[in-house]
Each structure stands twice: as structure tokens, then as C-alpha cells.
């Protein structure tokens, strides 16, 4: 296969919290649930520790998409930190959108430790969505991408 005809394999970074979502991912791994291998997971203690800088660095470093995941609202080990993550996420998504990064390239996913299958399915779905978007195009200006602020949180 030549370089041009190779199907596009998106490079994706996923941030998980130590307590729920990482365990969900872990469980998905242990029980050999299949999910697309495109996502490199980075474990934080809590989704509330997610500094938007990490996400921006991921994109600047070549990621085509970023996943942010944590415990379900109400279940955070550090009480309300995942609400903080949620507020950051929504604002971040709007800013990225204005910077020319399509809304579809960043996703928030709540998963409990028991939701390995859901986690695996969501990741596979996300990879397909990003594949459809194609590689991140830095030269796109905000005027050229659809403005989208409607939020959709999964699981």
C-alpha cells in the first residue's frame, strides 16, 4: 500500500481518572473486550486534575483527538472535582472550536469501574468519528469550520 492510500489512523490521547474510568479501561483490557488501539491513555488521579494545557499540548504534539474521562457525576473520589472537569471541558471545547479544531475531536466520557464494555464501545465509536473527520488540519481557520457549541456527554 502506498502512503496515500493507507487508511487514516487517528492518533488520540485519552485522559482517565485513577478511580473509575481508568479501571473501566483496565477492565476492558483484562476481559479482552475489543477496542480500537488508537487511543493512548494517560492516567490522572482525578479528572479534576486535568489542566487544559495537557489537552492543548496533546493537540500541538500531533493528536487528532482527545478523550477526557472520569467518574460519573456524584461518584468522584474527591467529591466534586469531576464537576470542575466538566466546566473546564465545556469551555475548552468552545475555545478549541474557535481555534479551528472541530468539536468532534474532543469528547467527555463518564465511566464507572464496572463499565468496561461501555468504555470500549465508546472509544471505538469515537475513533470512527475522528477517522471520518480526517487528520487535524492546522491551516483551517475558525471561519472554515462549523460553529458548534451544543454539548453531548456520553455514558
Amino acid at each position: 500500500m502506498t502512503e496515500e492510500t493507507k487508511p487514516f489512523e487517528p492518533v488520540m490521547i485519552g485522559f482517565t481518572c485513577n478511580w473509575c474510568s481508568y479501571r473501566a479501561a483496565d477492565m476492558a483490557g483484562i476481559s479482552r473486550m475489543k477496542y480500537a488501539p488508537n487511543v493512548r491513555l494517560i492516567r490522572l488521579m482525578c479528572s479534576g486534575r486535568l489542566d487544559p494545557t495537557f489537552v492543548f499540548k496533546a493537540f500541538a504534539g500531533g493528536a487528532d483527538a482527545v478523550l477526557v474521562s472520569g467518574c460519573h457525576p456524584g461518584d468522584c473520589h474527591y467529591a466534586t472535582q469531576n464537576y470542575k472537569a466538566m466546566r473546564r471541558f465545556y469551555l475548552m471545547k468552545r475555545v478549541l472550536n474557535q481555534l479551528g479544531i472541530e468539536s468532534g475531536r474532543i469528547k467527555l466520557l463518564w465511566a464507572s469501574a464496572a463499565e468496561g464494555q461501555i468504555f470500549a464501545n465508546e472509544i471505538t465509536k469515537f475513533v470512527e468519528e475522528v477517522r471520518a473527520l480526517g487528520p487535524l488540519n492546522w491551516n483551517k481557520t475558525s471561519a472554515e469550520i462549523p460553529v458548534e457549541t451544543k454539548e453531548e456527554v456520553t455514558a
Binding site: 489542566d51 487544559p52 494545557t53 489537552v55 492543548f56 499540548k57 470542575k84 466546566r87 473546564r88 465545556y90 469551555l91 475548552m92 475555545v95
Partner: peptide, 13 residues
């Protein structure tokens, strides 16, 4: 590191 990223955190909080 990134001014805007820092402000996202500050405003969201």
C-alpha cells in the same frame, strides 16, 4: 505554558 489554557481553568472555576 499556554496563556489561554490557564485562563480556561481560571474562568471555569
Amino acid at each position: 505554558v499556554d496563556y489561554g489554557a490557564r485562563l480556561i481553568a481560571a474562568f471555569a472555576s
